[in-house]
Lab assay of single mutants.
Amino acid sequence: SSYVCVECNFLTKRYDALSEHNLKYHPGEENFKLTMVKRNNQTIFEQTIN
């Protein structure tokens, strides 16, 4: 599966890399929402900020 930060167009295969991205680029933000999307037999988790 892949993880994408929709706000930044940041894409990674690792959830911990997304967490690091959030700490660096969205410090103090807590209203993240992950949406699971299936595309071409791949699972993509799209992160948006509410």
Rank of each mutant, 00 (worst) to 15 (best):
K24C: 11
R14H: 12
P27F: 10
I44Q: 04
E7V: 09
P27G: 08
K33V: 06
Y15V: 03
V4K: 05
N40Y: 03
D16R: 07
E30T: 11
L11P: 15
C8H: 15
V37S: 09
T12W: 03
A17L: 14
L18Y: 05
A17M: 14
L23C: 06
K24N: 08
Y3V: 03
E7F: 05
Q42I: 05
N31F: 03
K38I: 03
T12P: 03
M36R: 12
T12Y: 03
N40Q: 07
L23D: 15
H26S: 00
E46Q: 02
N41V: 07
Y15N: 13
K13A: 14
N41E: 12
P27Y: 06
S1V: 03
D16F: 14
D16L: 11
V6E: 03
T35D: 15
F45Q: 13
M36P: 14
Q42R: 08
N9C: 04
K38C: 04
K24D: 12
P27R: 11
L18V: 05
A17S: 14
E7Q: 06
K33D: 08
Q47V: 01
E30Y: 12
E30Q: 15
N40I: 05
I49S: 07
N40G: 12
E7N: 11
E7Y: 10
N31Y: 03
E30F: 15
I44G: 04
S2W: 11
L23M: 06
V4Y: 14
E30I: 09
T48V: 12
G28M: 14
E30D: 06
F32L: 09
T12F: 09
F10I: 13
I49N: 11
T12R: 03
K24S: 12
D16A: 13
M36I: 05
K24E: 07
H21M: 00
I44W: 07
G28N: 04
V4S: 13
Q42S: 13
Y25P: 02
G28V: 09
S2N: 10
Y3M: 07
C5Q: 00
H21Y: 00
N50P: 07
V4P: 01
S2G: 06
L11Y: 09
P27I: 06
N41P: 09
H21C: 00
K38G: 08
Y25I: 13
E30L: 13
E30G: 12
V6G: 04
R14N: 15
T35F: 03
T48E: 07
L11W: 13
I49C: 11
E46K: 09
L23S: 11
Y15P: 07
F10N: 04
H26R: 00
T48L: 10
L11G: 09
F32M: 02
T35N: 04
I49D: 15
F10M: 10
C8N: 00
S1T: 08
F45Y: 15
T48S: 07
Q47H: 06
E46T: 04
L34M: 09
V6W: 01
L23E: 03
D16G: 08
K33C: 07
Y25R: 13
T43I: 09
N22H: 02
S2I: 11
